[in-house]
Each structure stands twice: as structure tokens, then as C-alpha cells.
């Protein structure tokens, strides 16, 4: 697995986490390039379907980051995230997917270094887990 470069999709809320990622940039904090970011206005926009879709499309890990609870630009949109994602993780586990492949983080607009740290750590976690194996996609007859 040494040479495995995981593909990681990140959903970042515009107001805090995306700004935190920007700040990491401004601070020239170096982190692995595996993360690819999709900007949403609020982490509460993230439908678990997106996460499952990302995994089924070949992502090895998914990061969902929003404002700290209580800090949401939209008052309480991130509480939706805080409730949905744990339920999704339970379902994910039942599917036999390692929970560690999906990570929920609260990252503020001032936490550039925390963002960089999360990306580093998460990339390593996913790298260790290895590629996400998509199952059941083969046609029945050919799998035997």
C-alpha cells in the first residue's frame, strides 16, 4: 500500500471550513494533495447520498467539514450534519465499510492549521485502509 494515493472528496461549508482551507493556503501550510474539495454553502446541504455516490464513483475517503456547532452562518444548519452523519456512519458500518473512511470535522475560518492537520491525518488514515473496494457492481454471471 506504500504507493497507494487515495482519492478523497471533501465537502466544505463556504463560511467556516472553506475559509479555514483558504487560510491554510494563505499560511502556506503544506498538506497532501489527495483531497478534492466541493464547496457547499452549509454542511447541512450534504446529503449522505453524496457520500455514497463518491465512494461508489471511486473515492477512498470523504471529509465533511462545517462550522463548529453553534457557529453556523445559518444559525443551526450544521446541526443537521451533526445528526445525519452519525446515522450514516452506522449504516456504512453495516455495509461493511470502514467508518474511518468518512470523517466529520468542525473547522472554523480561523483554523487553517487545524484544516491542514486534518487533511494530513485523514489522508494517512485512508492510505492505511487501502483502496475502497466497490462491491456488487459486477454482473452476476461473471462473478461465479
Amino acid at each position: 500500500m506504500e504507493n497507494f494515493e487515495p482519492k478523497i472528496i471533501g465537502f466544505l461549508c463556504n463560511w467556516c471550513s472553506y475559509a479555514g482551507a483558504d487560510l491554510a493556503g494563505v499560511g502556506r501550510m503544506q498538506y497532501p494533495s489527495n483531497l478534492r474539495v466541493i464547496r457547499v454553502m452549509c454542511s447541512g446541504r450534504v446529503d449522505p447520498t453524496f457520500v455514497f455516490k463518491a465512494l461508489s464513483e471511486g473515492a477512498d475517503g470523504v471529509l465533511i467539514a462545517g462550522c463548529h456547532p453553534g457557529d453556523c452562518h445559518y444559525t443551526d444548519g450544521n446541526y443537521n450534519t451533526l445528526k445525519r452523519i452519525p446515522l450514516m456512519l452506522k449504516v456504512l458500518e453495516q455495509f461493511g465499510v470502514e467508518k474511518e473512511r468518512v470523517r466529520m470535522e468542525w473547522i472554523s475560518a480561523a483554523e487553517g492549521s487545524i484544516f491542514a492537520g486534518v487533511v494530513k491525518e485523514f489522508t494517512e488514515t485512508v492510505r492505511k485502509l487501502g483502496p475502497y473496494k466497490r462491491n456488487g457492481l459486477e454482473r452476476g454471471g461473471k462473478v461465479g
Binding site: V40, M41, C42, G44, R45, V46, D47, H73, G77, N80
Partner: peptide, 9 residues
């Protein structure tokens, strides 16, 4: 305000 929480729900 376009946060999209309702769309997800």
C-alpha cells in the same frame, strides 16, 4: 438564504 438544508432533507 440558500443554505440548502431543506434540499438535503
Amino acid at each position: 438564504k440558500g443554505c440548502g438544508v431543506c434540499t438535503a432533507a
